[in-house]
Structures are given as structure tokens and as C-alpha cells.
């Protein structure tokens, strides 16, 4: 159980997928414009990551080394399609708000990275720990980034249509660069520098 805990905890801070491994930056840059998007993306990535980690670790011994990457991609893409069809059919509201981000999970390096680095070398039991830890680490990173971008870029914090609070002055003149692509680079770079400087990450 201690190893399970270790595999679970490492993905959250020590090898945080966004700030330490610097994986999956493309979707991170694209969707961290609001807390809603961050939560939706986290949900999609968690389901796909958990599913692909379980299947890949279960069949890891019969996958020949030379075709492992295509096999991983097929499994990941299948999971994304299943999630996307299921959401579309039974949770149309969530599907709507996720929009383009669901299919984007296929090209999320975090999922493929965990398959290659962890699930293909470890048992199902530990691969579940790994998937959950990495998913939480991804969620934390997305929430921090999108919190800053949404607040500075729109002057208010809105979650699922409810405005939590707004900063007077910023609402009338939001720093809209933060909601655009350059703002994403700025925020991620500054956060990474801050975390490294304070020793949160190495």
C-alpha cells in the first residue's frame, strides 16, 4: 500500500504533469481561460487516462515493443471517442461546454506519456494510482492557471454561470491579454518560475 500511495502522490506535485514534466501544454494553453473549461477538461482527461492506463497495463505483456505506440494511440483514441459519444448522448450540456476540448484529449501528451512511462511497465493496481495522481496534478495546475487568467482577463470569477465575485475597475477594463494566447504563456511561465523559486517544485 505504501508503494500505491507513493505512485499516487508523485503525480500531484513532485512530478506535476504541467509544471514539472511540462506535458500537455497545448490543451493547457488553449482551455485555461475559465474555471468551467478547466473542470470539464479535467473530467475528460481523468476518464480517458484511467481507462487507458488500466487497459494498457493489463495487456502490457502481450504488446510487442515495436508496435506499442500505435497500440497506445488506438486505445486512447477509442476511449476519447467512447467518452465523447456517451457525453453527447446522455450529458448534452457537459458535451456542449467541452466542445472541441474532448477530441483534443487524443493529442494530450499526458495520457500517452503515462501509457509509455508507467502503464506499460507496471501492474493495473499501480497504474490506477498513477492515473489518479496525475489527473489531480493536472486539475490543480489547470485550476490555478485558469483562476488567474479568468480573473485578470474578465475581471470576474464565474463558475457554471454563477458569478462568485468581481473586481471593480477590472470588470470595466479587463486585461484581456490574459484571456488570449500570450496571456497563457505569461501566466504559465510566471507560475513555473514562482514554484521553482519557492521550492514547491524542483
Amino acid at each position: 500500500m505504501t508503494r500505491w500511495r507513493k505512485d499516487f502522490l508523485k503525480g500531484i506535485i513532485v512530478s506535476n504533469p504541467v509544471f514539472v514534466l511540462v506535458l500537455g501544454l497545448c490543451p493547457t494553453l488553449a482551455i485555461s481561460t475559465s474555471i468551467d473549461n478547466a473542470l470539464g477538461m479535467t473530467m475528460g482527461v481523468t476518464i480517458v487516462l484511467l481507462g487507458s492506463n488500466i487497459i494498457i497495463s493489463a495487456i502490457r505483456k502481450i504488446i510487442p515493443n515495436s508496435v506499442r505506440i500505435p497500440v497506445f494511440i488506438v486505445i486512447i483514441a477509442s476511449f476519447v471517442t467512447i467518452v465523447s459519444l456517451t457525453f453527447q448522448a446522455y450529458f448534452p450540456d457537459i458535451y456542449e461546454s467541452l466542445g472541441i476540448f474532448l477530441p483534443l484529449i487524443v493529442v494530450n501528451c499526458i495520457v500517452l506519456g503515462r501509457a509509455e512511462v508507467f502503464a506499460s511497465k507496471n501492474s493495473v493496481f499501480y497504474s490506477i494510482a498513477d492515473a489518479l495522481g496525475v489527473a489531480i496534478g493536472f486539475m490543480l495546475a489547470l485550476l490555478i492557471i485558469s483562476f488567474i487568467r479568468q480573473l485578470l482577463g474578465t475581471g470576474a470569477l464565474t463558475i457554471f454561470g454563477n458569478e462568485l465575485f468581481s473586481l471593480p475597475g477590472l470588470v470595466e477594463h479587463p486585461l484581456s491579454i490574459f484571456i488570449q494566447a500570450p496571456g497563457a504563456f505569461l501566466v504559465i511561465a510566471l507560475l513555473m518560475a514562482l514554484f521553482k523559486h519557492t521550492g514547491v517544485i524542483e
Binding site: I62, I63, P64, P70, V74, I75, S78, I82, L85, T86
Partner: peptide, 23 residues
């Protein structure tokens, strides 16, 4: 390797068409 990849793709295709059918 070719055989394994083919089998994996076949399984994936059947799972997907099954999902497509029920949704």
C-alpha cells in the same frame, strides 16, 4: 507485432461501433 496491432484495432473498431449503435 502486425497480428497484435490488427487484433487491437479490430477490438477497438467493434467496441466503437457497439458504442455508436447504442448511443
Amino acid at each position: 507485432p502486425i497480428l497484435v496491432l490488427t487484433v487491437v484495432v479490430l477490438i477497438a473498431v467493434s467496441v466503437l461501433s457497439f458504442t455508436h449503435d447504442i448511443t
